[in-house]
Design a protein around this nucleic acid. Sequence first.
DNA 1: GGCGGGAAAGGACATATGTCCCGAAAATTA
DNA 2: TAATTTTCGGGACATATGTCCTTTCCCGCC
Lengths: 233, 233
Amino acid sequence: MYRIEHREAVDAYIQFHRLERVLPDRLRSHAAVYVFAQGENICVQGEPASTLYVLVKGKIKVFHNSPEGKTLVLSFRTPLEVIGDLEYIGGDAIHNYVEAVTEASMIGISYRALRESGEDHAPLLRFLLEMMVKKLNYRTNHSSLNLMYPVEARFSNYLLSVCCDETDARFRGRLPVANVQDTANLLGTSYRHLNRVIRKLCDEGLIERNKSYIQVLEPERLKRLAGSLGKEG
Amino acid sequence: MYRIEHREAVDAYIQFHRLERVLPDRLRSHAAVYVFAQGENICVQGEPASTLYVLVKGKIKVFHNSPEGKTLVLSFRTPLEVIGDLEYIGGDAIHNYVEAVTEASMIGISYRALRESGEDHAPLLRFLLEMMVKKLNYRTNHSSLNLMYPVEARFSNYLLSVCCDETDARFRGRLPVANVQDTANLLGTSYRHLNRVIRKLCDEGLIERNKSYIQVLEPERLKRLAGSLGKEG
DNA sequence: GGCGGGAAAGGACATATGTCCCGAAAATTA
DNA sequence: TAATTTTCGGGACATATGTCCTTTCCCGCC
């Protein structure tokens, strides 16, 4: 990770995401752009929290390790997203691990600066509220899906969302095999079981598995399997 | 439901819960106390939302009906709790049903009044943030438990929390049988399966089932079953 | 090309949970 | 009280998923 202290860097992202009112001058002077390399840790679960981050570029993964050592992926997130808000408001230690999936840029402001210069700044508070609503809706949705649908449906749904949302055309309809373990954790199941489901879908000809990736063959039939599941938040 | 418009009624609850700064005069003049009878609907999923409620007395149940018609109890809540905050911020229709479990009193303020008189009131925004953090933590915790532990453990945990938290001594250690369906929904399982688990615990002598309630016999052994689950949020 | 060694896939079995349905018990009505 | 309706508990079976362990496969190294 490296920090870009230049005011221009911060301002560029702020303008791009229309955060001028949310982060006024007196806050921006305490902000910096933090650039995390692919795979780098952004937050470590259990450590004290000190910085509020706004994800402005790249893709990150949020996951939680239970006391028993199981890993549960909570979400993959792209801009605009706030990290460290719960801990800022609640005053707790960091709840989850956060890791950069691609190179990721975040605007970071220390809690101390926030408390000194932003505690009463309504646009910032409203922004935090809006982002938190988004987060809560996403989590609620995600967890009720986990409860209501079998892995087969959830995986189909996930595959389709990767297929359709992915902007990089080269990955269109493909899931790199390296991510299967992650996907299992995201779906809240075991690697073994996801594998079983993948094989079944292969046998039925809906997808194809290769050394390096999984390819969607029949999006329509997959959609039927995914059933009435909504799209990923 | 009936409304108490008297300013004194609102003020009494506000003082009791130390909300003087959160709800300043210009907001209080738009507030009223809404009293809901036991079993009455407070919110109806899908309808347009118009009022922000603060639960100040009594106990409410929040639950969601999926498109397939399954009911999932999200939580039972006691003061202090905010209802309608997501919808206020997000501008959506009502997400969940809310029902009074006991007679319940809520301070209600219309969104319109909030927007006109409270949109920039930092203490209110901070209050909403704090309550939403609580909500998010609760939901996250609850749903990861659902994912990680079998019904047997979750039910043991729930029984113990009912047993220990219940202030009414007459119900100490008992769960009215009438609530078994609700409990199943809260635990995210079917009535049938919860029944099976109850029977198993009965056979093992941990609990006793009666026409009208379920009684904890061996809290210590139940605790072991509940394993490492934390307490209910 | 043959040989560890580690990662990925798959087999076998146990458990958890859902669904369908029936029969007993309770409540309601005639 | 008897008949009918409703509720509740539980049997039988199917499915979903976890765990453990074996088998394959790939890869670097000799």
